[in-house]
C-alpha cells in the first residue's frame, strides 16, 4: 500500500490532478449544501451542461477550457436567476436557458470534431480531463474557489435565512433577489470547476452527492458544509487513485475515466447516508410536558 501511494504521487499527472481535484471538491461540497437547501439541483445540473458551450468555444479559440466553462456558466447562472424569481419560474427559466445554450454548444462541439487536432476535445469536455489538464490551471482554479468561498462567507447568514424561511427573511430586510443572484455566481463557479474534473455531464454528482449525504448526517449548516467538503475530497482523491490504478486494467490499458470512479464513490456515500442516518437526532424527543 505505501508503495502504491508513493508511485501514485510520483506519477507526473497525479499530483496536479489531486491538487485541482481537492480545490474543486471542497468548493463543490460547500456550495452543494446550499444547493440542496434551496432545491436548486436542476439549476446546478443545467449549469454543467451550459458550461460545455463555453468550454467548446474556449477550445476553438485556443483558451483553457476552464475560462469557457466559468465564463458561460456565470452568464447562464445570472440569466436563470434573473429570468425566474420564484422556484417554479426558475425551473422554467433554467430549462429555457439550458436548451438555448445546449443548441449552441452542440454546434460548437460539432465544429470541434471537424478539426483533426481535436480528437480528445469533446470527450474531455463532457467527461472531464483532470489528468490531461495543464497544471498551471491550478492557480486560476484556486482563485475561483477562493472567490466562491468568500462569496458564501459574505452571504452566509442572509443566505441561510433566505433559503430556510424566505418570507421572514424578506420581512427582516434580506434582499432575496440580490442574495439569489450572488449565490448563483458561487454556484456557477463551483459547477464549472467540477466540470473540469468530473466532466460537464457529471459535475452535478460532485455538487449534490456529498452535500445530500452530509445534510443527512449533521444538524448544523456549518457542520454539513464541512462534512460535505470532506466527503467530496474523499471521493475525488480515491477516484483519482483508482483511475491511476486503472491504467493497469483491461481493455486498453489506457485508464478508465476518473469521472466514473468519482460518481461511483459519491453515489456510495449518498446511499450510505440514506441507509444509515447516523444523525443522533433519531433519538426520541423527551415526552411532551403537560401544559402548565
Amino acid at each position: 500500500m505505501p508503495g502504491f501511494i508513493e508511485s501514485l504521487l510520483a506519477a507526473p499527472a497525479v499530483a496536479p490532478a489531486l491538487l485541482i481535484g481537492s480545490l474543486v471538491a471542497v468548493t463543490s461540497g460547500v456550495v452543494g449544501v446550499f444547493v440542496v437547501l434551496r432545491g436548486q439541483s436542476f439549476a446546478g445540473h443545467a449549469l454543467g451542461d451550459i458550461g460545455t458551450t463555453g468550454a467548446a468555444a474556449a477550445y476553438l479559440g485556443g483558451l483553457p477550457a476552464l475560462y469557457g466553462f466559468v465564463g458561460v456558466g456565470v452568464l447562464g447562472g445570472l440569466a436563470i436567476e434573473g429570468l425566474g424569481e420564484r422556484a417554479r419560474e426558475r425551473d422554467v427559466a433554467t430549462g429555457i436557458v439550458l436548451s438555448l445554450m445546449l443548441g449552441v454548444g452542440a454546434l460548437l462541439l460539432y465544429f470541434m470534431t471537424q478539426r483533426t487536432d481535436a480528437t480528445g476535445g469533446p470527450v474531455a469536455i463532457l467527461f472531464g480531463s483532470i489528468f490531461t489538464v495543464d497544471p498551471s490551471i491550478a492557480l486560476p482554479v484556486a482563485l475561483f474557489s477562493l472567490l466562491a468561498l468568500l462569496l458564501l462567507g459574505f452571504l452566509y447568514r442572509p443566505l441561510v435565512f433566505a433559503s430556510v424561511n424566505p418570507q421572514a427573511a424578506q420581512a427582516k430586510g434580506v434582499p432575496l433577489q440580490g442574495v439569489g443572484l450572488l449565490f448563483m455566481l458561487a454556484l456557477a463557479i463551483a459547477v464549472e470547476e467540477s466540470a473540469l474534473v468530473a466532466g460537464a455531464l457529471l459535475s452535478t454528482a460532485l455538487l449534490i452527492g456529498p452535500a445530500a449525504a452530509a445534510v443527512r448526517w449533521t444538524r448544523q449548516i456549518g457542520a454539513a458544509a464541512a462534512l460535505s467538503a470532506l466527503l467530496g475530497l474523499l471521493a475525488v482523491s480515491v477516484g483519482i487513485a483508482l483511475a491511476y490504478q486503472s491504467y493497469f486494467w483491461p481493455p486498453g490499458h489506457r485508464g478508465w475515466p476518473v469521472s466514473f470512479f468519482i460518481v461511483l464513490l459519491v453515489l456510495t456515500e449518498y446511499l450510505l447516508a440514506r441507509l444509515l442516518p447516523a444523525r443522533a437526532a433519531r433519538r426520541p424527543l423527551p415526552r411532551r410536558k403537560e401544559a402548565a
Binding site: 447568514r157 441561510v160 434580506v174 445534510v215 449548516i221 454539513a224
Partner: peptide, 16 residues
C-alpha cells in the same frame, strides 16, 4: 434540514 431549533431562532436576531 441541518438546522437546530436554536439556529432558527437566532436567524431572527441577526439573520439579515
Amino acid at each position: 434540514l441541518p438546522l437546530r431549533a436554536r439556529d432558527l431562532v437566532a436567524l431572527g436576531l441577526d439573520g439579515a
